[in-house]
Simulated assay, not measured.
Amino acid sequence: MHSSESDRIGSSLQTAREVLAQAEANKPSFGHSPNGFLSRSHGFLPVTPPLFSLYDFYRHWIRFTYQIVEVENSLNNNFSLRLMSVTRRDRPEMMTKLKAQLLLNSHDTFYKNSLQGILGQKLELLWNITLGFCAADVSITQLPKSIAHVRSSAIASKAEALIAEVNTFLQSLPPTFEDNPEEWARFDHQLQQIEQCDLTLIAHLKLALREGLLAFEQHEDRVVERGGTQLVEALKKIPNIIEHYYTALNNE
């Protein structure tokens, strides 16, 4: 492109601020309707940030619950591999090293990715919004600190070490179940316990969220004044649920 053409195009361009300034000068009411893009209450640079509505509050609870359900469905789908043949020569009920490794990988994905996603920023946002509506006197750091404390605790470290031992145990097993039925049965029992702990954890998280959703259903537009404590207490249960998860893994 020649410099003259570039200069011509450049001189014809305007910044967004200039466009808005001209539009406002030509038509002062332009964009200043109650919900317009230049309005002082709802525009893109409002004087006061837009407030959350009760509907927005409910929507965050629903979306977070859906995330829990999606993780539960994924976990059930992955663990259903236990009842399937992985290769043509395998019987569906047969446990093999390949199937066992895939099941352990499913746990690893759940623990390191899905669970981390559940207990991360989205939960913290839901907690902050809930406190804003229902308990402004409660510290916004209370829940994330409690979760972090449990996840960095001795029982958490012990549970993670146990999972590593189960992986090592798998590598030490003979190639087929028939080569050492007793050791294979012991390994499979440990594997089933891990699967059950994962499923129980996600089920308990879903039940805690259900208690919050019931508050919305029972009290509707009066949920803040009549069900606010129920909402906050539902989220406060989460650290204990995680602690029980680690305890169950250690008792497998």
Results as ranks from 00 to 15, higher is better:
31 G>V: 05
112 K>Q: 11
230 Q>R: 14
48 T>H: 10
172 S>G: 12
54 L>Y: 06
252 E>L: 15
135 A>C: 11
181 P>K: 12
188 D>N: 15
35 N>A: 06
28 P>N: 02
188 D>M: 00
217 E>Y: 05
119 L>M: 14
228 G>D: 03
77 N>H: 15
211 E>V: 02
131 L>A: 01
119 L>Q: 04
54 L>V: 02
128 N>G: 10
149 H>P: 04
225 E>A: 14
67 Q>R: 15
201 L>C: 09
94 M>K: 09
140 I>C: 00
192 Q>Y: 12
214 L>G: 03
87 T>P: 00
56 D>F: 01
124 E>W: 10
41 S>K: 15
39 S>I: 03
140 I>D: 10
95 M>E: 13
109 T>I: 13
189 H>G: 06
187 F>N: 01
33 S>Y: 04
7 D>H: 03
149 H>Y: 02
229 T>C: 02
119 L>I: 00
138 V>H: 11
56 D>V: 03
250 N>Q: 04
68 I>M: 04
159 A>W: 05
41 S>C: 01
234 A>T: 06
26 N>Y: 08
231 L>V: 04
98 L>A: 11
34 P>D: 06
135 A>Q: 12
16 A>N: 09
47 V>E: 13
73 N>M: 12
252 E>D: 04
80 S>G: 03
85 S>M: 10
233 E>N: 13
28 P>R: 07
6 S>T: 13
175 P>C: 05
193 Q>T: 07
62 I>P: 00
163 I>F: 12
16 A>R: 13
197 C>P: 00
217 E>M: 11
75 L>N: 04
174 P>L: 09
51 L>E: 12
204 H>T: 09
14 Q>K: 15
230 Q>N: 05
117 G>P: 03
64 F>E: 10
111 Y>R: 15
48 T>V: 13
84 M>E: 14
244 H>P: 01
99 K>M: 08
47 V>I: 12
20 L>F: 04
198 D>I: 01
252 E>S: 13
151 R>N: 14
32 H>A: 07
86 V>P: 06
159 A>G: 00
164 A>F: 05
183 E>F: 10
137 D>T: 03
236 K>N: 14
34 P>K: 12
5 E>I: 01
39 S>M: 05
75 L>R: 03
56 D>N: 07
47 V>A: 09
157 S>P: 04
68 I>R: 08
113 N>D: 15
70 E>H: 08
7 D>M: 10
186 R>W: 02
1 M>D: 13
208 A>Y: 01
123 L>E: 05
85 S>N: 07
6 S>P: 01
48 T>A: 14
206 K>N: 13
185 A>H: 09
71 V>Y: 00
26 N>R: 15
223 V>T: 11
100 A>D: 02
28 P>Q: 03
197 C>G: 08
233 E>V: 15
199 L>R: 15
99 K>P: 07
80 S>A: 11
73 N>V: 08
44 F>M: 09
195 E>Q: 13
18 E>T: 10
22 Q>L: 12
2 H>I: 06
164 A>I: 12
169 F>L: 12
147 I>K: 00
160 E>N: 15
8 R>C: 05
147 I>N: 07
87 T>G: 02
194 I>P: 01
123 L>R: 02
161 A>D: 14
145 K>C: 10
